[in-house]
Design a protein around this nucleic acid. Structure first.
Lengths: 210, 210, 210, 210
DNA sequence: AATGAATGAGCGTTCATTCAT
DNA sequence: TATGAATGAACGCTCATTCAT
């Protein structure tokens, strides 16, 4: 019985935490960490201000929890898409689509990740790169199997992946700065063209992206 | 003689302003607008707190002056490099190099531009895009003369340039997030390769970047 | 039951507000608006500085609340005394007594009303004259019934009342400037004599004040 | 020769002081001591800020000098009018006229005297009462000679004069508060009537004021 | 003697955090 | 457990005063 109760409580706590994180995510994204205001978070979450502090040690922890949850969601949504196919080029294509698509759906997270790279450099960067390198390994394996299958030219993977990732982030960042005037998904073809033209060895496959 | 005095005074005021802007640029970059603190700016500039306010109406104006000065510098340093050659491909290459090189030398500005896209969306974005579209026009002309000279394929310039710009920004952004572990300049060849491979028509010239 | 709670809360808030207003009244009276200092008000009220701002938007609102409360009290205390009799001359006598008596008991308010006639000309003057003209109407009616009853000579009421009011204020003002060396109440007979000698028609009644 | 030079210098210094006092009087009257701003005083006097401090030790001394000069002027202008006649009643009438007339011409001083009775209670009050009692003695002598000449009833002079003075001040104060809508001089007849009706013994003379 | 740039103490106000209920 | 009233450290900004020129 105890186990059941504990579980129930845990779920309740988790639900409360998520309820707070949803609001916090919105506010932090709109205002940035320093300008965001605990009073408003509490009010919008229909909770007393003290209650926020029962679930999160302080403003900083709340903020970092928002980041953590966001990066976890991102990871999950990419993995699902990547595992839908075995073709290396398709895997890469799916990853790019999933990455852009995720941020298009989770706009709050962009602002949050962009903003506070200074105040929380270490913590956020650490978390981001844990996530990033976790993915890099998988992407590298995908590229390698692409090379082995004669689909992709043999190049310096590390800097290529790093440049690709940077470029995608730049795309998302500028989309945000330009106030999301266009659909981010619509940039996928041109991105794939730029990424793949110099990289795909197999002529037939290359045609698909030119 | 009056002119001489006025000039001297102007130079003195300008020097003081720059002295303050240098420090402010550093602090704003490290802390972000909200966390940056006028007391520290004054102390680091070896000036009294009140002195800051003799030269800038308030914290916000000081911040925006930092941005304005930065973007002006950026524009100048790109223009100089671009005008060193008449060859369209070389012009583009030089612009990319100058852009990356500028941020490598003016690290503070990255943080500042990245940070406050929310608090100052309108003012910063406005200034940034004034700068950006000013350059876009010139770049477009360069591309066009490249197309006319049979060097570059005929494509949709606008979204290409937009994606290229976004990607460069992403490169700079991630370099900053990764704590500037590598030299940004070293990314130039791979960037040129990615940018140019699918774009250059002239086979001989394309070889230079492959 | 809800009503009860709401009422209780209202009373608590009202009590706190009054607690703050009492201290603020003292400090504003002693220092004037500009020199008065929120820190001291908080300390003397045994409250944190932030608490003041929970109950009053800012220093200005706090100040004006002190004035408003003071004028309300003044009005009430005059009305009570005036309504104790139906005789016009007695009514006027009672009003004068109540007016002087009020300021003798609420010394803080004198300083406050005297002080800030410049900084808050409009707001204070407006409130003061709302109060003043509210009373003038009543006083006029009293004078008129005095005239109808053959007690008072028929004169230009408006400038008479205006001069009488000014004179009473001068009395209070100088009493304050002279550091309240005498009892303000003791001036009542001489004031009545000065006011009434030239004004009362009825010989028997006039004798009372000569 | 030395004397001549010293005199010249003294005159120059005096002229500068007066130039500053004129401006200061205006500003202090409009803003009150605390809100008045040395920068503005300097600018309006067409002098450097430092120069103010060459002539007055600090803001407080400047303020008190304004008061001192004002009260001196007041004393002079009353004396001149009073000495124009030998008739006691006329002397009193002239004094009242001169008093009201002075403040009508020197509006700045009203604000200044009214304002800072708190911050400078002792200094201003001291100076004011030096002036006041200096006059009271003279007025008392005038009243006495009025009594001796059978013109005025024999009464308690001290409290009568005190009440009269207070009332005049009240008149001036309210005129200021009511934004000087009417001419202060126009109140003289009604004031004389109120003051004199109960006080003048000589029937013929009393008629003049009824 | 005159200036006005520089200064920093001081103040109004905000807001993350605590804690009595 | 949940609340929100209370707190006070912290910060932006002002302005009387000083002092090098």
């Amino acid at each position: 019985m105890r186990t059941k109760n504990t579980k129930k409580i845990k779920t309740l706590v988790e639900r409360r935490k998520n309820q707070i994180l949803d609001v916090a995510s919105l506010i932090f994204s709109k205002e940035g960490f320093a300008k965001a205001n605990t009073d408003e978070i509490a009010k919008r979450a229909n909770l007393g201000k003290g209650t926020i502090y029962r679930y999160f040690k302080n403003k900083k922890e709340l903020f970092l929890s928002v980041v953590d949850r966001g990066l976890d969601k991102l990871k999950d949504s990419i993995l699902i898409e990547v595992e839908k196919t075995d073709d290396p080029l398709k895997k890469i294509e799916n990853a790019i689509k999933a990455y852009l698509s995720f941020f298009e759906k989770n706009r709050n997270l962009i602002g949050i990740l962009i903003h506070e790279q200074s105040s929380f450099q270490k913590r956020i960067a650490k978390r981001y790169f844990e996530h990033y390198y976790g993915n890099v390994k998988r992407i590298k394996r995908t590229f390698k199997s692409g090379i082995e299958q004669g689909l992709i030219k043999d190049m310096d993977m590390d800097s290529l992946i790093s440049v690709y990732a940077s470029m995608l982030n730049g795309l998302i960042y500028m989309w945000q700065v330009e106030e999301r005037k266009y659909r981010l998904q619509d940039r996928v073809p041109i991105v794939l063209k730029i990424f793949f033209t110099g990289v795909i060895k197999d002529k037939k496959r290359r045609k698909d992206y030119e």
